[in-house]
């Protein structure tokens, strides 16, 4: 029983990370109608941006987090302006290929600057809290609390601000939003800011939970998309349910199958969801 509880804790931590990635994927799909394959590597960029602040400026990780989010948001907007925007009038598949190429560009840029070795923010081991028989690390609490704060902030943004409302309108019906006077370029800009910033947070949390490596984000792409699809792609709120479900399912699966085959769970979920319920749990875009 304690084992299962322990796996649940790991699952919620992983689920929090996946949620932050999946919200961005879902938003970008909802607004721009293409699957953003560079999202995993945006997470990597964010994680390494925080490393700069930690290593060079000596900041603690939680203070480096906002800087990393800002940096990744700027990178995301710049990529959109330079690469994606000129391709937007072509097909979504061209954008998909382009983003697959950007994924490798970002990853090799990270590898070029920081090298291929494993890194951590702060060396050393911190003793985890022991609650009954379940171990909970300090970092785990930071990750889950950070994800909750960011999700609440996003919720307030989408519900209360004019831009947030315009964003939801555009995700529902882009044509209708445009003829109602929504400034679509502004919405697209904010989509990349939010997508990039949340990806950076996911990347920093992931690096906190495991380690920094140039491919750390790429390996998250499959579960992140699984979370977005499960929640109904295009629906940021669905991404929360999808992220937690995939995270918990992946960790619980290790009680039954060899841990190395964890990614198979995300794949199985994608296939089953798309066959049984193609619009996801919350009915996203078909």
């Amino acid at each position: 029983m304690a084992d299962i509880l322990q796996l649940l804790v790991y699952g919620v931590v992983l689920g929090s990370i996946l949620t932050l990635g999946a919200i961005g994927v879902s938003l970008i799909y909802g607004i721009l109608r293409f699957a953003h394959f560079a999202h995993g590597d945006m997470m990597t960029v964010g994680a390494y941006a925080a490393l700069v602040a930690v290593a060079a400026a000596g900041l603690p990780v939680y203070a480096a987090l906002p800087l990393a989010m800002a940096a990744a948001a700027a990178v995301a907007v710049a990529i959109d302006r330079i690469v994606y925007r000129p391709l937007r009038r072509t097909s979504p598949m061209i954008l998909l290929i382009s983003s697959f190429g950007m994924a490798l560009v970002l990853r090799s840029a990270v590898q070029l600057v920081w090298g291929p070795a494993n890194r951590v923010y702060v060396p050393g081991i911190r003793v985890p809290y022991q609650v009954a028989d379940v171990r909970i690390g300090v970092d785990h609490l930071v990750i889950v609390a950070g994800a909750v704060v960011l999700v609440i902030a996003l919720h307030l943004f989408l519900r209360r601000t004019r831009t947030g409302k315009a964003m939801r309108a555009m995700a529902d019906n882009a044509e209708l939003a445009r003829i109602s006077g929504v400034d679509t370029e502004r919405v697209v800009l904010w989509t990349w800011v939010i997508g990039g910033a949340l990806a950076a947070a996911a990347g920093v949390f992931l690096a906190l939970d495991t380690r920094l490596h140039p491919t750390v984000g790429w390996h998250m792409l499959l579960p992140v998309f699984a979370a977005a699809i499960l929640g109904g792609i295009g629906k940021p709120y669905g991404a929360i349910a999808g992220g937690l479900t995939i995270g918990v399912a992946q960790e619980l699966s290790t009680a039954v199958i060899a841990p190395v085959y964890k990614p198979a769970v995300a794949f199985a979920v994608i296939v089953v969801v798309l066959i049984v319920r193609p619009r996801g749990l919350l009915g996203g875009r078909g």
Binding site: F34, A35, F37, P92, M93, L96, H219, L221, L222, F225, A226, I229, A258, V260, Y261, P263, A264, A266, F267, I270, V271, L274, I275
Partner: peptide, 28 residues
């Protein structure tokens, strides 16, 4: 047989999973 019904972008995601699982099988 599992994925042929999927739209192109979903198929792309599914094939990432296939390649990853095949790599893990060959490795382990």
């Amino acid at each position: 047989l599992l994925t042929v019904t999927l739209r192109a972008d979903y198929l792309a995601i599914a094939t990432i999973g296939i390649a990853e699982i095949l790599r893990l099988v060959l490795k382990n």
